[in-house]
Design a binder for these strands. Structure first.
Length: 551
RNA sequence: GCGCUCGUAGCUCAGUUGGAUAGAGCGUUGGCCUCCGGAGCCAAAGGCCGCAGGUUCGAAUCCUGCCGGGCGCGCCA
């Protein structure tokens, strides 16, 4: 971050002197091979192409300018087709420790989001039963993404959409009501698709105990009570599960409130005005094909009732009315076919395409010792999120969910997630943090007192290659965070943490800290470890994973 | 059939807006502290980045076609 910023600034200044401007496509990044230096710029390649010049000549000219300019730059060279390779001085890198010390828990925080208003909606599972492991993945991704976006200067609000209107909810009420009648030995006839789960019986029992006269009420009223009670009970469970998973939503948004407020009707009006709706076969249609979908979609059925899509349009319209500039939905991958029509809707509502993003979360295969665990409703299996958290802990589960691109299927092996080896990277990263904490504790016991801020003089003792390597990695943390935010990809942070932890373990094995030979050198190395520990902690915080002092 | 998506080491996967000789872990093989946490470290072997074209200084990345896997394709929610 600092390296990138400073070099970019220098180069811009030089370009200005040469009457050239910084091209959009210019990139500064660490080269794949370290022998090229700390940072490589393709600037000359891009500029030379535009001007029809030789990139190597241009790069050489830029390199000369850079060289005479700066004490922080140790070496500049030109290589390959015209890359400008820069190596910073050790002093430049050592400053990173002081920056971490200054920023502390805010190290890595950045303002790349420009206070853009973003909503992240996730989980939003129907209140028809407890959360399962697939919901857990969506929950971890949504929660972590919100943390990362906030850390990157976005103005974020998280939301859970409650599907409390519609047929499924009537079925839920009916199912409880029928179970209650069954418990009272009243005649029942089961409809085709009702909720058969054992928890429905439990809910019915509880409700009967609380309201003995329930079944004496008129049928409709009685079923309404059943529905309300069942939904409340199930949501209590969902909220408890989410809390145990360290996931919280700022707002719980009810679909029913949307219907009641007339928002759906308003949505229809907007579509009609924009010319995208029409009537056919007694139903109201939305011409989504005009906006990239492969079929037109029904909004209002010929029997007068609304489709799910209709209220979803109203819901998203409501989101934009609330002033969000970017709406991020986290969906199960089985809904991906739904994206084109939702995009079409957003566009018909007059919003730019890029104001709506969907993060698809692929299915989770639950395994035990390599064997697939059936995800059926049968009891006794680790099928619910609560069971999984109890089995492996929130930290391991969250890290596992966040250590893979969301859009690729994930094998979640219960035995592997409990294992404490690199197979299961959460321990590798947490161990790095615990190790740092342990050494700092030990140092204090031995009377080595590390000041809150290290001086440049002290840090000048850091000369080992592994030390400079750690510092270079630290410098990338901020970029990693802002990149994860921009790409809506929390797993970038996980991979970064694994790399940083690996570098720490290597360093630790190669060099003594407490036994470094001189007290001053020990202190300098302790300062480095403390900065690494802080960065690991900040990164884990973004994943919602704890950074233990000891394990 | 149409649409979306993925195809990278034996396995599981990274690869940021196109950058240099494609990375990590597991597994395999061989090593490492009488010392700060061995839950660790070091090293070796392992690749036509699905295939074939195209775009350009440059492609795992972008475009087209094909092959293979996953998912979706209701006046369901």
């Amino acid at each position: 971050m600092r390296a990138k910023q400073q070099l970019e600034e220098k180069l811009k200044q030089i370009l200005k002197e040469l009457n050239m401007t910084w091209p959009e496509k210019a990139v500064l990044e660490p080269p794949k091979d370290k022998k090229f230096g700390d940072l490589a710029a393709n600037l000359a390649l891009v500029l030379a192409k535009e001007a029809g010049k030789n990139p190597r000549d241009l790069a050489a000219a830029l390199a000369d300018k850079l060289r005479c300019d700066d004490s922080l730059i140790a070496d500049v060279s030109v290589a390959g087709p015209g890359f400008l390779n820069v190596r910073f001085s050790p002093d430049f890198w050592r400053e990173e420790i002081r920056l971490v010390e200054e920023k502390g828990a805010d190290y890595g925080r950045n303002d790349s989001g420009n206070r853009k208003r973003v909503q992240v909606e996730y989980v939003s599972a129907n209140p028809t039963g407890p959360l399962h492991i697939g919901h857990g993945r969506g929950a971890a991704i949504g929660d972590s993404l919100a943390r990362i976006l906030r850390f990157s200067g976005y103005d974020v609000e998280t939301e859970y959409y409650i599907n409390d209107a519609g047929r499924q909810m009537r079925l839920l009420g009916l199912s409880v009501w029928l179970r209650a009648r069954e418990l009272k030995n009243l005649p029942v006839s089961w409809p085709e698709d009702w909720y058969k789960g054992a928890y429905i019986v439990e809910i019915a029992k509880e409700l009967l105990a609380a309201r003995p006269g329930l079944l004496d009420l008129p049928e409709e009223q009685s079923q309404d009570i059943c529905f309300e009670y069942a939904m409340q009970t199930i949501f209590d469970g969902i909220k408890r599960d989410l809390k145990d998973f360290r996931v919280s939503h700022e707002r719980w948004f009810s679909e029913r409130s949307l219907v009641d407020s007339g928002a759906v009707a308003r949505g229809f009006e907007m579509l009609k005005k924009s010319g995208y709706s029409y009537e056919k076969d007694g139903a109201l249609w939305f011409r989504t094909t005009a906006l990239g979908d492969d079929l037109d979609r029904v909004l209002k059925k010929s029997d007068g009732s609304l489709t799910y899509f209709a209220s979803d349009i109203a819901y998203h319209n409501n989101k934009f009315e609330r002033g969000f500039e970017l709406v991020v939905d986290i969906w199960g991958a089985d809904h991906h076919g739904y994206i084109p029509r939702m995009r079409a809707a957003v566009e018909a509502l007059g919003k730019p395409r890029e104001s709506f993003e969907v993060v698809l979360v692929q299915l989770v295969n639950l395994l035990k010792a390599g064997e697939q665990v059936a995800m059926s409703t049968r009891a006794g299996q680790f099928e619910t999120l609560a069971d999984v958290i109890m089995e492996v802990g929130a930290d391991a589960a969250r890290f596992m969910f966040l250590s893979r691109k969301s859009d690729s299927p994930l094998d979640f092996d219960l035995d592997l997630v409990k294992r404490r080896t690199l197979d299961n990277p959460v321990y590798y990263v947490q161990y790095a943090h615990a190790r740092v904490s342990s050494v700092l504790r030990r140092a204090a016991e031995r009377g080595l007192s590390l000041p809150e801020r290290a001086t440049a003089e002290l840090l000048a003792l850091l000369k080992e290659e592994e030390e400079l390597e750690l510092l270079r990695i630290l410098d990338r943390f901020t970029d990693t965070v802002s990149g994860a935010a921009r790409n809506l990809a929390p797993h970038h942070v996980s991979y970064y943490l694994m790399e940083l932890s690996g570098a720490l373990h290597s360093y630790y094995a190669a060099h003594q800290v407490l036994g470094a030979g001189s007290g001053q050198l020990s202190l300098a190395r302790l300062a480095l470890l403390r900065a690494v520990g802080q960065t690991v902690r900040n990164g884990l915080e973004l994943l919602g994973v704890e950074a233990p002092e000891s394990m």
